[in-house]
């Protein structure tokens, strides 16, 4: 059944409200942010209209380069680790009974919806000296005394992988659950072990999905803001932290906006790339 095109102006009326809302409260704020990124900063936390690239020129400093490099590196590592963990997990999950799948989905969604504050607090407790996991190691005789495992790079990585894992599973879930089950059956009938069937049939046939997922998780991890602060040292602060710090504490909206615009461009470019990979698989 092909759908008709709207004919009268009144037909468009229902979409006027959502379009207006998104225009006023998403497109306009975005435009203002882009404009401010070219404004001139005045000492004392204000800015005045101008058109200068000074805020973008600050990207060339070694400090910014360091933060950017660290953010991109950390997000890539989180994305790769999360997909390495989530892919086999999701593959096993989609072959479980429906009931089992539903319970896991509820659990994953509950963890995914948790506030970053709560995830950061939970991991800092798990890594703490008095209530942490090292007490368990001491009790098992693996360690001599309990220690604090944070702030550290490992703690940031663990927290961010924890945050990204449910997201990764849910991004992979549709592709894996729609995968033709006869693929594996055919491989098994021809004598492949379950592991060979997984690595030689499943993984290659979903190569583009895996790449697209890595990119999606990378963008998701770029947004992590509180975990680097709660679990890491200042050296481990990411671009998201720097943007907030400049906007709120340094009152430098123009520079914060310039960094945000840069982050938008990186994210949009990557999301476009992941859509391209995802599209190719369907063809």
């Amino acid at each position: 059944m092909s759908k008709p095109s709207p004919r009268r102006l009144a037909d468009y009326a229902p979409i006027a409200f959502p379009a207006g809302m998104l225009l006023a409260f998403f497109v306009v704020p975005f435009g203002i942010m882009i404009a401010i990124s070219f404004y001139h900063r005045v000492q004392g936390g204000f800015y005045e209209p101008a058109f200068e690239f000074a805020n973008y020129e600050r990207f060339l400093t070694a400090f910014f380069g360091g933060v950017l490099g660290f953010s991109l590196g950390l997000s890539s590592l989180v994305a790769v680790v999360a997909v390495l963990l989530a892919f086999p997990f999701t593959w096993l999950l989609v072959r479980q009974r429906r009931q089992v799948q539903v319970i896991w989905l509820v659990f994953l969604l509950s963890v995914l919806s948790l506030s970053e504050v709560i995830i950061g607090f939970a991991w800092s407790t798990l890594f703490s000296k008095t209530a942490g996991i090292t007490n368990l190691f001491v009790a098992l005789g693996l360690m001599d005394q309990a220690v604090s495992l944070y702030p550290s790079f490992g703690a940031v990585l663990a927290g961010m992988v924890y945050q990204a894992f449910p997201y990764t599973v849910l991004v992979l879930y549709p592709a894996l659950s729609r995968l033709d089950p006869t693929l594996v059956e055919a491989a098994r009938t021809l004598g492949a072990s379950p592991f060979r069937a997984f690595f030689n049939v499943i993984v290659p046939s979903l190569r583009n999905t895996i790449l697209a997922t890595i990119i999606m998780v990378f963008v998701f991890a770029l947004g992590s803001y509180l975990l680097p602060q709660l679990l890491g040292r200042p050296q481990q602060w990411t671009l998201s932290v720097l943007i907030t710090d400049q906007a709120i504490y340094q009152s430098n909206m123009p520079f914060a906006s310039a960094m945000a615009v840069f982050l938008v461009l990186v994210s949009l470019g990557l999301v476009g790339l992941s859509l391209l990979f995802g599209q190719r698989e369907k063809a």
Partner: peptide, 11 residues
């Protein structure tokens, strides 16, 4: 889809 800090700063 975008990192939340961007929407936050826009607002």
């Amino acid at each position: 889809i975008l990192p939340p800090v961007i929407t936050a700063l826009g607002f």
